[in-house]
Amino acid sequence: MDTSTLAIEVKGISKSYGTVKALDKVSLDVRRGEIFGLIGPDGAGKTTLFKILVTLLNADEGTATVDGLDIVKDYRTIRSRVGYMPGKFSLYPDLTIEENMEFFATLFGVTVEQNYDLVAPIYKQIEPFKKRRAGRLSGGMKQKLALSCALIHKPSVLFLDEPTTGVDAVSRSEFWDMLHNLREQGLSILASTPYMDEASRCDRIALCNTGRVLDIDSPQHMVEKFDGRIYGIKSHNMYDLLKELRDNRCISSCYTAGEYHHLLAGAGFDLGDLKQRLIAKGHSDVEIKSIVPNIEDIFIKLLSNEQY
C-alpha cells in the first residue's frame, strides 16, 4: 500500500518501562479519513502508543509515520499536524474557556476565527460559558473544550486518548456523534477506549491487551469471522446457573453478560438437552437463545486463548 494513503503507519513498535513491557512489537495502519479505535483495558499500552506517535516519547524499537512523516526525523513537523487530547485533563484550569482556545490557537500560529467552522459544532455547546474558568467546568464540558483546543489548528490527524472514560452512556454516545462529524470533514482519527461497546462506532479497531495487539479488523468482520456459537441464557437464579453451566462439559465457557449469561457451545452441545437438564436441577424460567457475539465476547475469547 502506498504510504500516502495512510494517516498513521506503525511497524513493530516496542517500549519498556524497566521490566514492564508496555508495548510489544505493535504494528497497525490507520487509513486516511478513518476512525480507528484502540480498544483495551488499562495497561494495554494505549497511552504509551499515543505518546510515541505524537512524538512525546521515543520507542525502544520499531518505526512509525504520522501523516506520511517519520516520528523521529520529522517530529517537529508532526507536532504541527496532529491534534492530541491526552487522557488526563491538560488545559489550564485558571484560564477561561475563551482564553484556553486563544492560547492554543496562538501556539500554532492561527486564530480562533480562522478555523471556527471546524470547531463550531462542538465549541458552540460551551461558548455560552466562555468566561468561565476551565477548572470549574463539568466533566462533559471539559471534554468538549479539550477537543476544541485539539482541533483549533485544523490538524490532519487527531489523537484522542480515552476521551470518554468516566463519562456516562448518553454523553459518550454524543461524543462519538461529534467524531463522525469530524470524519466527514476529512480528519483521520485514532481514539482509544476501554468501553468495548464503543467499538461499533469505529471503522476499524485494534483489540489490545498488556502491550500486544490481539486482532485488527472492522467490528463487523470481527463478528462475522467469530469461530463458535454463542448463546444467551437466563433463569430465576443467575449465580447458581453460572456455576451449573461451568460444570457442563459441552460448554467451552460461560460468563456474565448482563441480563443473560453468555455461553460458548462446545462439542456435543444440545440446546434442548441443556434446557431439560437445568429444569431437572430445579431451575425455573429457563430461557436460551442463539445470539450474535459482540466485541466483548470476541475480546474474551481472544484473551482466553492466550492466558486465562
Binding site: D168, M196, N209, T256, F299, L303, S304
Partner: peptide, 30 residues
C-alpha cells in the same frame, strides 16, 4: 473502571458471592 472484561466478570462473581453470604452491596457503575 478500566478493568479487562474477564477480570471485570471475576470481580462481579466476588460481589455475588459476598451478597450470597448476606453482605449488602451498594454499587455505582457506568
Amino acid at each position: 473502571g478500566g478493568v479487562d472484561p474477564i477480570t471485570r466478570r471475576q470481580f462481579w462473581e466476588m460481589i455475588y458471592q459476598a451478597a450470597s453470604q448476606g453482605t449488602t452491596i451498594f454499587v455505582t457503575t457506568h
